[in-house]
Amino acid sequence: MSGDHDHDHGHGGSELSEMDLRVRTLESLLVEKGYVDPAALDRLIETYETKIGPRNGARVVAKAWVDAKFRAWLLEDASAAIASLGFTGRQGEHLIALENTPRVHNMVVCTLCSCYPWPVLGLPPVWYKSAPYRSRAVIDPRGVLREFGVTLPEDVEVRVWDSTAEVRYLVLPQRPAGTGGWSEDRLADLVTRDSMIGTGLALDP
């Protein structure tokens, strides 16, 4: 699986066309047998391409940065606080927010498969599902962070959260300095997907 990119962009053109053919064949069979509605397939794809993605999570984070009551609610009951912004559902039925501070850095992984908080972050990136990340995040998170260009001070406690059940984790990154008085919309642009997984930090203004 570490070779996902190689397969897609490099020597694996044959796998691409093989999979393309195979999935087309499977789809036409399942449609003919009446198990799936092709219009529903299109709707599912459209949803994850255009509606559900990390901009949802960025809105949650930006609101928590400016609204102390919302922040407290998010840390107490993330499912309810996030649902109040309209983000609910599949692969995010039970949400917990993890607060990064100058003393504690949280990072999320699923060592067993690819569990990820879809309603707030969308579909997981290839690296999140890949063997290098799933294997090393729990034993060498600082080494993994370096591969993302992040070096944390030695005295920071690094906590890794392995998503082994149906609870999904969203990291609340630290608010960047120099953003006092910024609007939620402006702040949301500093919130990267990786900062909400814990493999990155929010962008500096």
């Binding site: 570490s2 996902d4 990119h5 897609d8 962009h9 691409l16 999979m19 393309d20 195979r22 999935v23 087309r24 789809e27 397939l41 599912l44 794809i45 994850y48 391409e49 993605g53 992984v109 060592t111 067993l112 969308g122 579909l123 990136p125 290839v126 690296w127 890949s130 063997a131 290098p132 990340y133 799933r134 294997s135 090393r136 995040a137 729990v138 034993i139 060498d140 993994v144 591969e147 993302f148 392995d162 990786d194 493999t199």
Partner: peptide
Amino acid sequence: MGGLQSFGPVRPEPNEPPFHAPWEKRAL
């Protein structure tokens, strides 16, 4: 896989799209 060390570095892809091929959309 937790704890294995032989898979090499993590390779983040800048501006990664949700899908890398049309068949991945249909697979999802």
